[in-house]
Every structure is written in structure tokens, then in C-alpha cells.
Design a protein around this nucleic acid. Structure first.
Length: 486
DNA sequence: ATGTCC
């Protein structure tokens, strides 16, 4: 058996692209990294593997902790990590969900082709930039009072439907139809709600963006048809989360859990893994608050999509219905969810924590919207501004290997600080426009430097690992046309 | 990711 050694952690190669940290010491289970050798190499020098190993000490963790091919270090728990934790005997960990609760992406189709759009890029990118607020702090397409925020927290995309920012079809193409019914606005602090008031329909900063893309390849024409994707078609990818509201929910509950459950905390190798024991009052209220923040993020992406439809109507002089601007799907990248999984022949209720990973349910699962159920759910994997993105289809092996999950992006190879030292935003922007015909407009040049194509791993390789393992199969590839970001 | 330090 081949082994890989780094930072006093030894990984054993189970088979191609599957590496295991065997169970030792206080680990409750082994841990697995799904990666090619070169992807493994990229995380060997940082804290990713140690964090993954630490995760297995969470009480009630089932089978193994998993790290996706795009994984990298995060707050306590790796970004790209998946942990299925027993919902009765285990725990719920905010750090294993992430600060940006329901950070995620949605893709909207159009019937425009790249040819239809050529020449309009400068106007389109300008209009989008003026219409969809981005960057740090307040400012949203909508600004509402606290009561409205509470309705959004309780009802998710249903609120948007009733308020005229969504149509029925949008709702059906979100996970959980855009509403976690376990949400309780009362579990969310006033401070969190106040932060949300001015951020309904906003992108935020960091790796969040709105990107107009063209489909360059459809690898599976049958599933491509089911997803409504064909070469040269224009699509829009929206990447944002729950903004300050979700961040505040995470902060509030990390504080509360650290204060109330110090015994569990002291048994863990890293305070950043702080968790509420399953069945405790705090586990219940964090779950209710997290679900509420998830609903807020869905509404955020919905309102951004609504505004995008209006911008296209303005720029192209046709109605959005006429341009068939329909939601393909919306996926969450950061969440915990009660799911039923087969573990060694036994059906168990688990809090599946996915942080920087995507649910990737295959054909037949009832959670997959009816229109896609015969083929499996769409999975959206943003790459970088210079490499483009992928649409995958949930793979059969995901249910046995990864608690029904796959990767969520390309994953960073260098820190934001390092990126700003290596690149200058203006240069990156000019180069993308001159060499790749990608029009970028950002709130700050620093963000462009931080998001330069070269700060990301090779998205092709991430997707190749997903495909090789059968957890998510590539259906189509897209390339950016216009991008706006914080 | 984040009113990037109350």
C-alpha cells in the first residue's frame, strides 16, 4: 500500500484518488481525502489535514470525515469537508457549517447565444454593476424593516414569491423549494436581523460574484437536454450567501456554545470546532437559526436573480420570459441538514455538515426536483474568472462514499494576502479582457487581485477526481463573459 | 466569508 506522509500525518492510499488517515488516539473514525496526488500535495503544507483529523473527534461522527478534492483549511473544519454526525447521540457544530451560512450558487439559463450578446458586454457589465450592490457593508437591491426580515427568515423563497420577486418555477428549482421549514426567526438575534435589513439582494465580497457565462461544452447531451443546456448558450451564475446576517448567527452561537458546553469543548482538539450536543437546547436553537439564515441566503440569491432579469430586459429590450431566463438550480455550499443515510447497512439520521461542498444526490432521490429526478440533481462548481465553471450531475457513488456530496469549487492555492502581493487588480482585469474577452467590474481592485485566476486550483482536476470517483459527473462547462464582484 | 478589532 502506498502512503503519503506530511506534517506528522500519514495517509494510506485506499485506491486511486482516495487517501485515508487511519483511526488512532482520540479519533472516533478514520478520515478520508478525495484527491489526486497533486491536489493532495497542495494541501500538505497547511492545516487542512490536521483539521480534517480533528473533525473525527466530534462525538457521533459516522463512518469517516471526508475532504473533497478542492479542500483547504478553514475555521476549525476544512473548507471542502463533509461530516455526517448522529442527530441523536452526536452534535451540531457551527464551525463545520461555516460563517457564511448557505453560501451557495444558482445558475439561470437564457435562450440568448454568445453571438446575441457580443458587443453588449461593456453595457451589460456596467448595468449589472450599478444594479446589484456588491462589496462589504450595507446596500441591497431591497432594504426592508426587521419584520420583513423575520418573514424572509421564516418563509424563504416563498416570501419572494408572495412579494413578486419570484415565480413558482424558481421555487421548485431550489433545494427544499427554497424554504427550510425548521427555521425559527426567534432563534436569530436582533443584531443579526438588523444586519440583514439592508443586504437583501447583495453580493458581498471575497469570492462572491455575478457572472454572465457562455456554455462552451456539453459532455452529456441527454442530461444536458434535461438541464436545458446547449453550447454557445448564455447562462448567469450567482454566487453569494447570507451576508452579515449569517455571519452574526454563526458568531452568536459559537459564543453561546463555548459558554454553555465547555465540557464538550474541552474534549475537542480545537476550540474552533465548538459543538452543541444533539438534543440540547442550543443544538435546537442553532439549527433553527441556521435554517433561518439559509432561508435568508436563498432570498438573497433570488432577489439578485430577479434584478438580473430586469437588467437583461433593459439591455436587450425583451422580457425575461421571452429570453427564457429560468432558474436551472440553486445549490448550497455551506449547511448542516438532517438527512437519512445508510451507514454499514443501517439507516441513520445524521446532521450532514457540508462546508464548502455540495449536495450531489443521484437519480431517484426524492429530494431531487421532479424535473431532474430521472438523471440526478445539478451540481454547480464555479472555477475561476480565467478557467470557467462546471455543471455536474449527482453521481450514484456519492450516496455510499460522501454522504451524497461532491466538491464546490476550485479551491484556493494561496492566501488573499499573498495574492495581493503577487497581483495587481488592474493588470488582472486588463489581461482578462484583452486575452480572454472577459469583462470584469469590481468594487475594489484588491478583490480582483485576490480572485485572480492563478490563486485557484485547476478546476478541471477537481472535476476529474469527482468524475473518477462517480460522486458527480460533468455535464457541461462554461466560460465567463462578464463578471461583477465585491 | 465578515460593518476584516468593542
Amino acid at each position: 500500500m502506498r502512503t503519503y506522509e506530511t506534517n506528522s500525518i500519514t495517509l494510506e492510499e485506499v485506491r486511486d484518488n482516495v487517501w485515508e488517515i487511519p483511526r488512532t488516539g482520540d479519533m472516533n473514525t478514520p478520515a478520508r481525502v478525495l484527491a489526486s496526488e497533486s491536489l493532495l500535495e497542495e494541501i500538505s503544507g497547511d492545516r487542512t489535514l490536521q483539521q480534517l483529523k480533528n473533525t473525527t473527534e466530534l462525538p457521533g461522527i459516522a463512518k469517516y470525515a471526508v475532504c473533497m478534492p478542492d479542500g483547504h483549511q478553514g475555521y476549525g473544519f476544512p473548507v471542502g469537508g463533509v461530516a455526517g454526525i448522529d442527530a441523536e447521540t452526536g452534535c451540531l457544530s457551527p464551525g463545520a457549517v461555516g460563517y457564511d451560512i448557505n453560501c451557495g450558487v444558482r445558475m439561470m439559463r437564457t435562450n440568448l447565444t454568445y453571438e446575441d450578446l457580443k458587443g453588449s458586454e461593456p453595457e451589460l457589465v456596467e448595468t449589472l454593476f450599478e444594479s446589484v450592490p456588491c462589496g462589504l457593508g450595507g446596500g441591497g437591491v431591497l432594504e426592508k424593516d426587521r419584520e420583513t426580515v423575520e418573514e424572509i427568515l421564516a418563509d424563504g423563497v416563498e416570501w419572494a414569491l408572495n412579494a413578486g420577486y419570484a415565480v413558482e418555477e424558481d421555487l421548485r428549482r431550489c433545494e427544499d423549494e427554497g424554504r427550510r421549514t425548521d427555521a425559527d426567526p426567534d432563534a436569530v438575534s436582533q443584531e443579526a436581523k438588523d444586519r440583514g435589513k439592508s443586504q437583501i439582494g447583495s453580493l458581498g465580497s471575497g469570492n462572491h460574484f455575478l457572472e454572465v457565462q457562455r456554455v462552451t461544452d456539453v459532455f452529456d447531451s441527454e442530461i444536458g437536454d434535461t438541464y436545458g443546456l446547449k453550447p454557445e448558450q448564455i447562462v448567469v451564475l450567482i454566487h453569494t450567501g447570507s451576508r452579515g446576517l449569517g455571519h452574526q448567527v454563526c458568531t452568536d452561537y459559537l459564543d453561546a456554545i463555548e459558554q454553555s458546553h465547555s465540557e464538550l469543548l474541552e474534549s475537542l482538539p480545537d476550540t474552533e470546532l465548538a459543538a452543541a450536543p444533539a438534543g440540547s437546547e442550543l443544538a435546537a436553537s442553532y439549527y433553527a437559526a441556521m435554517c433561518a439564515a439559509i432561508n435568508f441566503a436563498w432570498v438573497n440569491r433570488q432577489v439578485v436573480m430577479h434584478r438580473t432579469r430586469e437588467v437583461f430586459e433593459e439591455v436587450f429590450g425583451r422580457s425575461w420570459e421571452n429570453m427564457e431566463m429560468e432558474l436551472l438550480y440553486d445549490v448550497a455550499h455551506n449547511s448542516a441538514k438532517l438527512e437519512s443515510h445508510d451507514i454499514d447497512g443501517e439507516k441513520r439520521e445524521l446532521y450532514v455538515h457540508r462546508k464548502g461542498s455540495t449536495r450531489a444526490f443521484p437519480a431517484g432521490r426524492e429530494e431531487v426536483p421532479e424535473t431532474y429526478r430521472s438523471v440526478g440533481q445539478p451540481v454547480l462548481i464555479p472555477g475561476s474568472m480565467g478557467a470557467g465553471s462546471y455543471v455536474l450531475c449527482g453521481g450514484e457513488a456519492a450516496m455510499t462514499e460522501t454522504f451524497g456530496s461532491t466538491a464546490h469549487g476550485a479551491g484556493r492555492v494561496m492566501s488573499r494576502t499573498q495574492a495581493k502581493q503577487e497581483f495587481w487588480g488592474g493588470d488582472v482585469q486588463q489581461e482578462l479582457q484583452d486575452q480572454q474577452h472577459v469583462y470584469v467590474k469590481a468594487d475594489s481592485g484588491a478583490t480582483v487581485a485576490e480572485e485572480a485566476p492563478d490563486v485557484y486550483k485547476d478546476v478541471d482536476e477537481v472535476v476529474a477526481v469527482s468524475e473518477a470517483l462517480g460522486i458527480g459527473d460533468p455535464i457541461a462547462r462554461t466560460f465567463p463573459v462578464c463578471n461583477i464582484k465585491g
